[in-house]
Design a protein around this nucleic acid. Sequence first.
DNA 1: CGACCGCTTGATCATAATCAAATTTTGTGG
DNA 2: CCACAAAATTTGATTATGATCAAGCGGTCG
Lengths: 250, 250
Amino acid sequence: MQASKPSPIADIKPCSHDYQVNCGNCRLNSICLPLALKNEDIKQLDDIIQRSKPLQKGQHLYREGDEFQSVYAVRSGTLKAYKNTDDGKEQVTGFYFPGEILGMDGISNNIHASSAKTLETSAVCEIPFTSLEKLSSVMPQLQRHFFQLMSKEITEDQVLITLLSKNSADERVAALLLSISSRNARRKLSATQFRLPMSRVDIGNYLGLTVETVSRVFSRMQKMEILRVDNKEIEILDPEGVRSIANVGD
Amino acid sequence: MQASKPSPIADIKPCSHDYQVNCGNCRLNSICLPLALKNEDIKQLDDIIQRSKPLQKGQHLYREGDEFQSVYAVRSGTLKAYKNTDDGKEQVTGFYFPGEILGMDGISNNIHASSAKTLETSAVCEIPFTSLEKLSSVMPQLQRHFFQLMSKEITEDQVLITLLSKNSADERVAALLLSISSRNARRKLSATQFRLPMSRVDIGNYLGLTVETVSRVFSRMQKMEILRVDNKEIEILDPEGVRSIANVGD
DNA sequence: CGACCGCTTGATCATAATCAAATTTTGTGG
DNA sequence: CCACAAAATTTGATTATGATCAAGCGGTCG
C-alpha cells in the first residue's frame, strides 16, 4: 500500500529516505520492529500501519484522557509525553526519538494516561491496537515483541525513578545526555554531537529540576570542558567525563 | 521438586482461605485475573500456574540478573521490588500486595531487571511466561489482560515519577498512605486502619527520602491529628486531611 | 544482660528552589 | 531585512527543604 494517489501538495519535495513506504525498507526497522519476522509477516504488519503526514511542531498526537486506539512509532522528529498533575502543572515522562514506540500507557484503561506532543516537525506510524492484538495472536513473535516493548518501557521508567530518587542535578543531566547520545548512536548518528530537540524547561521538568538548575549544570560542565553548549547544539568533549559525572552504566 | 505429590509437611495447618487450590475459587481473582474468562479457560490457566509454599520474611523470589522465567501473583503477604544502583545503593521500585502481579520487568531482556524480596511471610502463584504466552495466543482475553497489566505498571511508574519529581516529603508520604489504603479497600480490608508491612527505610527509599524525613512526616501528621501511628500500625483519623496533603487524586 | 536494630528527635549543613534581572534567541509584521 | 515583542536561557543573590550528623529510646534476640 503506497501513497495510493500522488499527493497534490507537491511543493514540498521530501528526500527519498524520509518517504518510507513500508516497514520492510524502513531504515529504522532494526530499532522499531521485531528482528525475526518473515517477509510475509512484515507485509501483514505493513497493511495495518498508517503513516501520517508530518506533524508540525507543538501538535498533539494524543491527549491525556483521549480514547486509546493506537500506539505510534516515531518515523522522524521527536515527541515528548507528559502528564498533567492534579495541581495543574505538567510532568514530562519521556522523550521519543525515531524508531521508538509511544502510547502504550493507554492500553490499561483504553484511555491515554498521558499526552504526546511534537517537539519539532515529526512523522509517525500509527499502529491501530486492535489490529495489532489480532495479528499478535497469530504471530507469536509479534506478541513477544510487544510484551518486550512494554517491559522495556517499565524498566526505563524504573531507571528514571532511581535517577529522580537518588541522583544529584549534575548526575541527572549527565545521565540524560548519555541516554540521548546512545539513542543517537543506535540510529547511526553522532554520539558526541547533536541537537537537543527539547527546551531547557522540558529537560528540567523531566529530570525534576528547575530551568535555572539545568542551565547552571550546563554552564558548569562547559567550564570543566566536558561539554560544549551552543544553545541547543551539544558537543560532548569528554564522554568519559560525562559518564563519571553520571555514575550510571549508561 | 514439585507439589505434584501432597506435601509431607503437614504440621503447618493453614486456614482454608489461604489454601486456594485454583484461580476459580480464589478470593483474589477479581483483582488478579481477567474478569471475563470462561470456566474452561480458567481451568487451562490454572493448569500452568504453580502455587508456592510460603516464603519466609526476607527471602528472594528472584534477583536482578536472574534468568526471567515467570511472573508472579501475590497470594498472601507483601513483597518489595528493588534495583541495585551503580554505586551499590538500593532503589525500591514497588510494593506488591495480594492480588498484584510482579516480575514483568524481566520480559524485555529475558533477565530480571530488579530483585523481589518478601517483607513478611508470603505466598505467590508462579506463572511460567512461555506457557502464558502460548495460552495468550489462543485466548485473546488473556492476551489483552496481560497487555493491560503491563500498561498499568507503566502508568503507575509514571505516577511515582511525578511524585518524586514534583512533590514535597509530606505529599509523597501522604500519597503512599492513600495508595496502600485504597489497595486495602480493594481487598475488602479497612481503608483507615492497617499495618505497614515495610520498614521506614523502605518507605523512604521508595519515596526518595531519608528515614529521618519519613519519621518526621509521620510525627507531624500525628501532631495534626490526621494520623495515629503506633510503630507499623497506622490509623488514618482524617482521610480528607491526608488527601488534601497529598494533593493527588488518590 | 548487653548488643543490635528500627525508629525518633534535634542541630547543622548543602543542594537546589525561588526570586530577580540581564541577555540571547526566536518569531512577527512592516 | 530590520525592528520590535515575546520567549528562552543564563547568571546572581537569597532562602527553604530535606540530607547529614549525632544522640537517645524502646524492643528483641542471642
